[in-house]
Amino acid sequence: MSESTEKKMVRLRSSDGEVFEVEESVAKVAKTLQDMLEEDCADAVIPITCVRAPILTKVIDYCKDQVMISSSSSTTNNPNERTEQERKAWGQKFMEGVDSSTLCELLVASNFLNIEGLLNLGVDKMVSMIQGKYPQEIRDMFNVVNDFTPEEEEEIRNQNAWAFERDPYYKKRSSSK
C-alpha cells in the first residue's frame, strides 16, 4: 500500500462516467495517454469518451500486465519473464471468452488509446473467429445486415464461385485421419 501511494496516480473516466485510478506507469502503456501525460495536460480526470467501463477494465488489466512484464524483465533471471510461447498462451487466455461485440469495442479502444499489443491481440482473435467462415456465419456472428438484394448477392457469389469450392486436397487429408 505504501508503495502505491508513492507512485503518481492517473485518473481515467470511461464513457459511462466511471472513474478508474491507475498508476502512471500503467497508463503510459497507452501511447495516447503517454503523450498527454508527457505534455502535462492531464492534471484532472482524463475522459476517455469512446470506451465503456467494462472495456476500460479489460484494457487496464492488459496494461497492468505489460507493466509487470517490463518491470520484471529488467531484473535478470526473473521467473516472471515470458518466452514467446508463454506470451502467446497468455494472449489467448486474455482473449478467451471475449465475445464479438466486446472484441469490437476492445479494438476501438486499443486503437483510440494506441496500444499496439492489444490491438494485435484483438486483430488476431478476430482473424481466428473469421477464419474459414462463410458469409452467412459472419453475418450471424457479427450482426451484419445483408444489404444486398438476392440477385446482387447471387451475382457476386457467381463471380467468386471458386472461393466457395471446397478444397479437395484439404478434404482428403481430413477424412483420412
Binding site: S100, V123, I130, R139, N143, N146, F164
Partner: peptide, 28 residues
C-alpha cells in the same frame, strides 16, 4: 459490432485473411 468498426480497423483484420476467404466474404 463489427459494422461499427471504422474502415481502418476492418482493413487490419481483412489484410490478415487468406485471399480465398476474402473473395468469399465479398458477399457479407
Amino acid at each position: 459490432e463489427i459494422s461499427a468498426l471504422d474502415s481502418y480497423l476492418l482493413m487490419l483484420i481483412l489484410l490478415r485473411l487468406p485471399v480465398k476467404l476474402l473473395h468469399r466474404l465479398k458477399c457479407v
